[in-house]
Every structure is written in structure tokens, then in C-alpha cells.
């Protein structure tokens, strides 16, 4: 989706001194909104704190600073607003764990009825607040096509409550309630849900996935979403050093490897059809991704679980085929999903 005009240093880096300022990322600007500012109490290397700033700063840029935000209960809400210190520099409201999309819908309705049509609404939640407890409200917001960009920061579990499984926790991951006991694989295979596809089934104007590893892709998607009206959904993978038992410095690398392994497909869809896929730049085996994470340590011990690694590899390979994640030789992509 992003045309690279020049081969040059830092095309994928945050900034690029060789680009015109208007072509640079929002994050490269010293004048960026810093929607969430310093002093928050997120863990070291928190992917969600990073993702939230990436998304909201881009939204702020796209809407010329005219943005209001609601935030469901979760890590992001907790670490950013302990009385008396807020980390938010944008209008922000937290209500409950399960009602973020409905609050956002109400905000959009209230703004429209008040004639504040330039003010845009962003809702945000973690995966628990999105795919589990908030799912009813999310689906309602989607089907009503409320004018909301809802962002799920997916760190694949209930991290704030001590790392329990959510419906976004991947198979074989060890969590506090999917312990590796006996032959248990960690989190079960064949369960869970991938909400971007469910969002697409609502045929809303825009659905996209992204990660904190590829800022330009993420910002492009936020910008694109903000250029539309109606219900829009962005699902951002945000690795969690705590819950994934990984080094804080590996957060972005993990997001990158999740994509490059094929385990996390990055794509866009409009009105229920996949319209673009972000290709894997250098395919890696799932091992490269899994081995960096303590939640998968049981797969690689002695004797380990090569059978489970193979099943995860099969899931990744299925994504590659299903979404057309690898450029074919003639440079075109072949997605079997959508048109």
C-alpha cells in the first residue's frame, strides 16, 4: 500500500531526514501530539503504551487535533491515570471494561447532535475489552455503523489482572490459567477468535490489522481510517514483555517476528473485502518468534513439544496462503480471502 519512492536509509524507520516534512511520520515530528505523555506507569518496553501513542498521534494529526477518546478498563487505562496524575494530553474518558464501543458510539452521537461534526471519536481497549467483555458493544457499534474508530491493542491476554487467557490468546501460550500441566499444551488449539475477520463480517467501511513494528503501515492505516466515517476497526498487535515473558527491549522485534513468521497477518479490508495485504519482507520460521518468549518456553525445553511447534507453524503457513502474505515471483499478491 505504501509506495516507496526512493531506496534510502530509514524508509522503515520512524523518521527520514531526506523526506519532505509532510511525508514524514507523525512520530518523527517534535511537534507530535504525545497523546500519552511521560510518567505513565507502564512496564518497561510496553507495547501498548507505544501503540497508543502511535495510533492517537496519527489520529490527532489526521483530525487536526480535534479528537476525543474513550478507553476501556485495562492496563492502558490503569497505568495512565492513577490519581492525581493523568498521562493523557487529549480529551479522554474511561468508563468500564466492557462498554468502550458503546461509550464511543454515544460520544459520536452526542457530538453530531451538538453540531461538533469536526470532532472525531476514537475508542480504544485491550484485547479483553474488545474481543471478550466488550464484544457485544463492539458488534453493536459495528452494525449501527457509528462514526467511531475503535482500536484494539492486542497483547493477547488479560495482563492487568495477572496474565490470564483471553479469546485473543494464541494456542500453546502459557498463561496464569492455561498452565502447562501434564500434556496440556498451554492455551488450547482450536479456540479463540480473530476479531478483524468478525469485524469484516459486519461489512463496516474499514478494518485493518497492524503492529507496533511497522509504524508507517500503522500510521497509514490510522490516517486512512480517519479519512472515512462510520464504524472502523483497527487491531494492533502490541507485545507485552510481562505477559509474554520477554525482554522489554524485544517488544518491537516480537511484533515484527509475529508478522514475518505469518502468525499475525497484516491487512486491510473495506466493506467486508480484503483490499490490501502487507507482505512479509523476510519469512522466518515460527521458532524465531516463539523462542524469545517465556510463555512458549515449554515448547523448547527437553524434550520440548515439537508437535506443538509444528501445529503453530501450520497456523502461520495457513495465514500466509489465506491472506497472500508472500509476494509471488511476479510481484503480485494472491490472497485467497476476499477479492
Amino acid at each position: 500500500m505504501r509506495e516507496t519512492k526512493l531506496y534510502q536509509i530509514g524508509t522503515f524507520a520512524v523518521g527520514n531526514r531526506l523526506l519532505d516534512p509532510e511525508d514524514r511520520s507523525a512520530q518523527a515530528s517534535p511537534d507530535r501530539a504525545n497523546s500519552i505523555t511521560s510518567g505513565h506507569r507502564a512496564c518497561q518496553g510496553c507495547g501498548e503504551a507505544l501503540g497508543a501513542r502511535y495510533v492517537l498521534d496519527a489520529a490527532m494529526r489526521a483530525a487536526d487535533g480535534d479528537v476525543v477518546v474513550t478507553n476501556s478498563t485495562g492496563c492502558l487505562e490503569v497505568f495512565s491515570t492513577p490519581y492525581p496524575e493523568s498521562s493523557w494530553q487529549i480529551p479522554w474518558v474511561h468508563s468500564l471494561f466492557g462498554n468502550g464501543p458503546a461509550v464511543a458510539a454515544g460520544m459520536a452521537a452526542g457530538l453530531r447532535a451538538s453540531g461538533r461534526t469536526s470532532t472525531r471519536v476514537v475508542g480504544q481497549a485491550g484485547d479483553g475489552g474488545t474481543v471478550d467483555i466488550g464484544f457485544g458493544c463492539l458488534s453493536g457499534m459495528f452494525e449501527r455503523n457509528d462514526d467511531v474508530l475503535f482500536v484494539c491493542y492486542d497483547n493477547q491476554g488479560y495482563m492487568n489482572t495477572g496474565v490470564q487467557r483471553s479469546a485473543a490468546t494464541p494456542p500453546a501460550a502459557r498463561t496464569a490459567n492455561t498452565g502447562v500441566i501434564g500434556d496440556e499444551p498451554g492455551n488450547a488449539f482450536g479456540q479463540g477468535k480473530f476479531v478483524p475477520l468478525i469485524a469484516m463480517a459486519h461489512e463496516i467501511p474499514y478494518v485493518a490489522t497492524a503492529t507496533v513494528a511497522d509504524l508507517h503501515d500503522l500510521e497509514d492505516k490510522v490516517t486512512r481510517a480517519m479519512g472515512m466515517h462510520g464504524a472502523r476497526y483497527l487491531h494492533v498487535l502490541v507485545p507485552c514483555p510481562l505477559g509474554w515473558a520477554a525482554a522489554p527491549a524485544e517488544t518491537i522485534r516480537l511484533a515484527r517476528l509475529a508478522v514475518e513468521s505469518g502468525l499475525f497477518p497484516v491487512f486491510e479490508a473495506e466493506h467486508g473485502e480484503v483490499t490490501a495485504v502487507t507482505s512479509i519482507r523476510g519469512k522466518v520460521p515460527v521458532d524465531d518468534y516463539l523462542r524469545l518468549q517465556g510463555r512458549y518456553a515449554h515448547l523448547f525445553g527437553d524434550p520440548g513439544r515439537p508437535d506443538l511447534v509444528a501445529r503453530l507453524q501450520a497456523l502461520a503457513d495457513r495465514n500466509v496462503v489465506r491472506f497472500g502474505l508472500l509476494d509471488s515471483d511476479d510481484g503480485t499478491q494472491n490472497a485467497s480471502l476476499g477479492s
Binding site: 536509509i9 523518521g15 514524514r24 503504551a49
Partner: peptide, 28 residues
């Protein structure tokens, strides 16, 4: 020539690419 110069990875030295500025979760 420009293309070729821009292939340089600037090993071990800052290229003002803003990546550190961007990736810091703490705006630090």
C-alpha cells in the same frame, strides 16, 4: 549515485532517523 549513497547503513553512527525518538514508549 544518490541511490547508491542511500544504501549506506551508517554502521555504528546516528543517521538522525528518529527511530529512537519514535519507539520510546515513555517519550523519553
Amino acid at each position: 549515485a544518490l541511490y547508491e549513497a542511500r544504501r549506506c547503513m551508517s554502521c555504528g553512527n546516528c543517521i538522525s532517523c528518529d527511530n529512537c525518538f519514535g519507539v520510546c514508549p515513555d517519550n523519553a
